[in-house]
């Protein structure tokens, strides 16, 4: 009896340790994981956001043709950012989502369209995410995350709080909002929302903190050395 309970404890410990090694790109819902009604439902939810973002980009490009090339550079930057490994607090490495950085630099409207393209490339080139689940992934990573980040950033700046704190909060909360959204998307389908939430919490909370710190470092460097370039960005 004693022996069995020890075995059980060891197996539980092993299971928990296995969970700690989940790569963070596990936040992309894999191809075919969602049932048909949900997959298409999320696509339909995304359509108005994508159309609005696309129209706003189109207007800016018509005013300033340079914006198209700059936007493309920003999209490529977002892809490269999400492919890098960042050091996480728990010691393991994980990929940043880049949600907060993108939203603060380019604004939420451009981020929706760039996010859609980047997620499509990630699905096809790296098999992170998929075609049928593209709608769900776009909603969590290119709509909810950026809107939360951007909203929080603007709000905190208005209340006159320190810029570093505003950037940290925006990036970390954008990350967390993305992860909660993904958990809800999975939970409503298979009815175990809390389970997804607690499993992803293991990787995503340390990652959100790490990404918050990283975004602050990036902004400090940009403020010091790239004021003019940031002004350029206001055309986007």
């Amino acid at each position: 009896m004693m022996k069995r309970s020890v075995c059980k404890r060891i197996s539980l410990l092993a299971a928990v340790l296995a969970l700690l090694t989940i790569p963070a790109n596990a936040m992309h819902i894999a191809e075919g994981y969602l049932p048909v009604p949900w997959a298409f439902g999320w696509m339909a939810v995304c359509v108005p956001f994508v159309v609005a973002g696309f129209l706003s980009i189109k207007k800016k490009v018509a005013l300033n043709p340079r914006a198209k090339v700059l936007l493309a550079m920003c999209g490529a930057f977002a892809f490269v950012l999400s492919a890098l490994k960042i050091p996480s607090v728990t010691g393991s490495c994980s990929h940043p989502t880049g949600v907060g950085l993108g939203a603060i630099l380019f604004g939420p409207a451009a981020t929706v369209v760039l996010g859609l393209i980047v997620l499509l490339f990630q699905a096809l080139l790296l098999a992170h995410g998929g075609l049928t689940t593209l709608g769900a992934n776009v909603f969590s990573m290119a709509i909810v995350g950026p809107f939360v980040s951007y909203g929080l950033y603007v709000l905190l700046k208005k209340t006159g709080c320190k810029p570093a704190l505003a950037v940290f909060a925006a990036a970390a909360m954008g990350d967390l909002a993305t992860y909660v959204t993904t958990s809800i998307q999975l939970g409503v389908v298979y009815g175990n929302f809390l389970e997804y939430l607690s499993i992803f919490a293991l990787t995503q909370i340390p990652l959100a903190i790490a990404e918050g710190i990283l975004t602050v470092v990036v902004f400090n460097v940009l403020e010091k050395y790239a004021k003019e370039e940031l002004r350029d960005l206001s055309v986007l």
Binding site: V216, V218, V221, E229
Partner: peptide, 14 residues
């Protein structure tokens, strides 16, 4: 990592 990202970003704008 922060320096890497900001450098790549500035260079990509250039």
């Amino acid at each position: 990592m922060g320096e890497l990202l900001s450098t790549v970003f500035v260079r990509s704008l250039h």
